Computed example of a mutant assay.
Amino acid sequence: MSATSESPKYKEIKIPSATPLWNLDAWQYVPEGKGTSPCPVIVMAHGLSGNKTMGLKQYAEIYVQMGYACVLFDYRRWGASDGTPRQVVKVAEQLEDYRTVIKYCRQQPAFDPNRVVVWGTSFAGGHAVSIASEPQLNVFAAIGQCPYLGVTATPPFSWTLIKTATYAILDSLKLKVGLSPILVPACALPGEVGVMNAPDSKSGMFGIVENSPGAKYPNTINASSIFELQAYSPKDRAKNIQCPVLVVHCETDTLCLTPGADATAAASSHVEVVRFKDCGHFEIYPGAKFFDDDVKLHKEWLQKHVPV
């Protein structure tokens, strides 16, 4: 199934997650006419509050035309995957879901088990760095674009902050006793309650949706997800990275700040940081100003480090 007759086709698959009876919904691309040799495979997921319908297909189609297989998936509780309560962020689960899909890929005869590439954007870009730092997984390479690495802007003290914190505390308590979560906007305008309310957050996220035919985006997230973000710092794991990792950093990013990219690069000689000047967090996605430059970079880097 594909957007046009010229686009690479994908197969919808269900991958059992670590939670019994909860499947991960995934799209699997295999290059046509690849021959009998197994090909490298890129495991892909979206960032905070996003799902695979939001622009990931555009990247995957480019990689598949280069000869790479791709498996795009939604985390438990998100997108088309199983799991309740919905729209709840659990970092440990999301990392485990990456490991689950990597294991699945290594069991497929069409994929080279020794050349698995981990790909993530925004929050999932941090996951790509974290997964690359786990020596037992032995991934071949990783790409994190505009990744969340543990450094973000501190919101100013305001009534909005007080309300957001109150919702977060109540949500945390509700989840602990098995009640339904308190959902707030994932993206909001400055001054509004929301987990991401930088000036370009709402317009940027909905720009991704507008440039992704068929995208579905509820724009909701559990309020206590802010505590998950505060406790998560992929840059602190980077010292264990032993495979090539590309970090694409947007220099005017208001969500994922420069010190995170700097610290990640300083922690491991295997990390290469490429900086896009005058580029905001949402300006490297499909349809945006730096998308072509971003994809060109990915292609050159993959051809160098993971040749087909």
Rank of each mutant, 00 (worst) to 15 (best):
D82T: 00
Q107P: 07
A266D: 08
L297W: 03
N114V: 00
F290Q: 12
G83N: 12
P307L: 10
Y104W: 15
R275T: 06
L255Q: 06
A168F: 07
A142H: 02
E272M: 07
V247Q: 05
G214H: 05
I182L: 13
N222G: 15
A188F: 06
N138D: 14
P286T: 02
I42R: 07
P20K: 09
R106T: 04
W159Y: 08
D74F: 10
P113Q: 04
T121D: 11
H270P: 09
V308F: 13
W22K: 09
Y59V: 11
S201F: 04
Q145H: 08
D262L: 12
P31V: 02
S268V: 00
A267I: 00
E283A: 13
G67H: 01
E300T: 08
I143K: 10
P244D: 03
P20S: 07
H281D: 07
Q28E: 14
A231V: 06
E61N: 15
D294G: 12
K304C: 09
E283L: 04
V245K: 07
R99H: 00
K299T: 12
T19E: 04
I226E: 06
L183F: 13
V151E: 14
S158I: 08
Y29W: 14
P31R: 02
I131V: 14
Y148K: 08
K14M: 13
I131E: 02
F111A: 03
S17T: 00
F227P: 13
P307H: 09
F276G: 03
W22H: 14
M1P: 14
F206I: 07
A60F: 08
V184K: 05
H249K: 11
L246V: 05
V117W: 03
P181A: 04
G126K: 02
A69H: 10
T160R: 08
E6H: 04
T164G: 10
H270I: 03
A18L: 08
P218S: 05
V306W: 12
D74Q: 08
A261P: 09
E210Y: 02
N240E: 15
I102K: 01
A3H: 11
E210I: 00
A26N: 03
P8V: 01
P113E: 00
